[in-house]
């Protein structure tokens, strides 16, 4: 399997362990990623607050780069995934708008064709029949006994028309991956909710409350760790967990992994190789479960 990899910004910045573990997962699975080094930030639904056409032009440019590479595009961030799919929908559903966007792209040598490449989150790729078979064949260290709580990230689920999950209100794709890795999925209500990250600069208390409610729900449901496909969710749930812990009477402490870290652990990589020592909430308690 060979894909154009859209890394997104945060996997190159505040969650570099996501990039590291993605590349280790790919290496272990024999997946070839061609990094899209000239692709811009997706805008995270924020650039479109300023100028919707600008956001769509930047993202159509990104998709056109994958089209030029002749490779399906893979994201490792739920937000990037949803935002790129939104642009695809905006441009594909309105021929006049598509022409307008392509006029903007023309001078740069790019043209968005549409319908030529798939835009998929890494979790969607692993969740295909081919992906699950590959995982099944390559698991070296089954994660037996590890209770894992998926946290999907809003943008891969909503709006449901653009989601790649069959039932976005009750998705099972990540949990299916967990089972193949030998882990035990924990189903809890908050797994499809918002982590609060988009308003962390505007309404910190509400943001932390949202993240805290999800973490406590996962803990109360018996999870050993939360696993997310979104680096922004990871920041909200891990980097700000000390604040969340202080806000909650019951306290709150649970490691949060990126999905590729969980995958690569099962492929036999060590936590250090996957940057798990970079997490704010220590993941060492998971070592004991997996020992």
């Amino acid at each position: 399997m060979k894909f154009a990899l859209f890394t997104g910004c945060v996997a190159k910045g505040a969650t570099r362990e996501l990039m590291l573990s993605t590349m280790k997962s790919a290496e272990g699975l024999g997946i070839e990623f061609v990094e899209m080094k000239s692709a811009s930030c997706c805008g995270a639904g924020v650039v479109s607050e300023k100028n919707p056409l600008l956001a769509d032009a930047l993202n159509a440019r990104t998709i056109s780069i994958a089209e030029e590479q002749g490779l399906d595009l893979v994201t490792i961030c739920s937000t990037c995934q949803g935002i790129l799919k939104k642009t695809e929908c905006h441009v594909d559903s309105d021929p006049a708008y598509k022409e307008k966007v392509n006029t903007v792209l023309e001078e740069g040598g790019h043209q968005y064709a549409g319908g030529k490449v798939k835009i998929q989150h890494f979790a969607n790729v692993l969740g295909t029949e081919e992906g699950l078979t590959l995982l099944r064949d390559k698991v070296k260290r089954p994660l037996t006994g590890l209770k894992t709580a998926a946290f999907y990230g809003c943008y891969v689920l909503r709006p449901s028309e653009l989601s790649l999950y069959e039932d976005p209100d009750n998705p099972t794709g990540m949990e299916e991956i967990f089972k193949i890795l030998g882990a035990t999925p924990v189903y809890y209500e908050s797994r499809t909710k918002c982590c609060g990250f988009p308003i962390i600069m505007m309404n910190k208390d509400a943001s932390h409350d949202m993240a805290g409610n999800a973490l406590i729900d996962a803990i109360d449901s018996g999870a050993d760790c939360v696993v997310t496909g979104c680096p922004l969710c990871h920041l909200s749930l891990d980097a700000y967990q000390p604040e969340i812990d202080k806000m909650n009477k019951k306290g709150c402490s649970i490691p949060v992994l990126h999905l590729p870290q969980l995958v690569a652990l099962a492929l036999g990589y060590s936590p250090q190789e996957l940057g798990m020592d970079k997490h704010i909430i220590s993941t060492t308690r998971l070592d004991k479960i997996l020992a």
Binding site: C154, Y155, P159, A206, S207
Partner: peptide
């Protein structure tokens, strides 16, 4: 600006 983009 307090909208969290959850799309619900």
């Amino acid at each position: 600006w307090d909208c969290t983009h959850c799309g619900e």
